[in-house]
Design a protein around this nucleic acid. Structure first.
Lengths: 123, 123
DNA sequence: TCAAGTACCTACCAAATAGTATGTATCATG
DNA sequence: CATGATACATACTATTTGGTAGGTACTTGA
């Protein structure tokens, strides 16, 4: 929050994400918690609380932040049921589902090049 | 540089990279300049100076840092010829070349989901 | 002796990202 | 009236990442 649009940092970020398709997608799904959330949603719609429980190490602030960014980027849908207590469901959009082949190749590479992942295919 | 190993930040970083294959590879090739460098090397061995000229926006510090990290991760090879003036060649390792299908899928996704990349397939 | 070419390195500062702690809203239930 | 459940929000701090500016080494050639 509170990004300084005029910084060289932001300028370069815009440059690489607009000119390089690899960097473009990398910035959309490649930070700390996004892959974990996406992975969870591949197995279907999940409630906020379910995501929290599934991804034990994430803090509420980071989870919400991650969800907001994924939503803004059109990768996930947020569906709030106006009931008490609140009920919110997250699911992948078409763009999100389209990540499947990308992720599949990423997992393949990791399994091939890192032994510790041989046993744990899930996040 | 000067990472604080005991921080929650580092702990979580280790956690996600060791437990999630997506995050594992994302951290290896998904920061600002790595994709640009990798892309350059897909078209063959390049000298340090050539990379600098090809990736105009990168500073020498960031380019070197990026190259060092890619080398440490076994994605690129560094071959120094002990001549004056110095001559150093960078090329992809087998692991690096194995990134090709991953990157291919990433580019596909980006082209599908972002119009501005339709014209510029290169970085 | 001074500049040029090549591939770096280092100190320092700016900016962004991640984490901690605490607070909010609403209604049902005891 | 206090507590619990659910899904957040906000302020603040810690940590990391990125950028700027300048310097190094070695040899050739003017």
């Amino acid at each position: 929050m509170a990004v300084k649009e005029s910084s060289t940092n932001q300028y370069n970020k815009r440059l690489v994400t607009t000119q390089c398709p690899i960097t473009f997608i990398a910035y959309k799904m490649g930070n700390r918690w996004k892959p974990l959330v996406i992975r969870q949603l591949f197995s279907g719609t999940k409630r906020y609380g379910e995501l929290r429980k599934a991804i034990t190490a994430v803090s509420e602030k980071m989870l919400i932040q991650t969800l907001r960014e994924l939503e803004a980027d059109g990768i996930i849908n947020r569906k709030a049921m106006p009931v008490i207590p609140p009920h919110v469901e997250y699911s992948l959009t078409e763009s999100g589902k389209d990540l499947e082949p990308v992720i599949s190749e990423m997992v393949k590479w990791s399994l091939k090049h890192n032994r510790s992942h041989e046993s744990t295919t899930n996040c």
